[in-house]
Design a protein around this nucleic acid. Structure first.
Lengths: 74, 74
DNA sequence: ATAAATTTATTGTTTTACGATAAATTTTTA
DNA sequence: TAAAAATTTATCGTAAAACAATAAATTTAT
């Protein structure tokens, strides 16, 4: 499972969704979908912008959790 | 600029493109395009599979280089 | 309460992944 | 070095999904 940590990076940078939107250049609606992990793919051009504006690496934005991680045995 | 390090991870794991293809489930052609950084976007489902099979994180596969990094002044 | 910020929803367009396939090229091996 | 195997590149078609534009709903701040 891949999760998106744009929200975490925004918090670390004390940056608002509005400012991220302005600087990345997508619409607010789409930045919001991205931030909340509601996308199924991402363009490298967009990831590039996010890394630039948030001054971070793709690994700060995308995280992999192996299947079953954090689950309870049954 | 975002670069793709699937080739690096394959080398680290001593894994062939053929085996990666077999285990990830895409066609060889598409794995090759991915491996050689010739895609403009990636589905999270695909990134997930890659991380699973290569036992790594997105950050091992995707890397951001700020514009102008490594260039000579002029 | 109300204004601002954010999220969610809808529709349409464009981009692009991906499959299937085949040909070209490179690498390995006998 | 010739054949075989692996990898890359190319083409075409289809399906998926980003993204824009917009508006409405919801949440948060003032």
């Amino acid at each position: 499972m891949i999760i998106i940590n744009v929200d975490v990076m925004l918090a670390k940078r004390k940056m608002s969704v509005t400012e991220l939107t302005r600087r990345v250049g997508l619409t607010m609606a789409n930045i919001s979908l991205l931030k909340n992990g509601k996308v199924k793919a991402i363009r490298l051009a967009t990831l590039d912008k996010l890394c630039e504006v948030l001054a971070c690496q793709p690994g700060d934005i995308l995280e992999y959790f192996p299947d079953g991680a954090g689950e309870v045995e049954e």
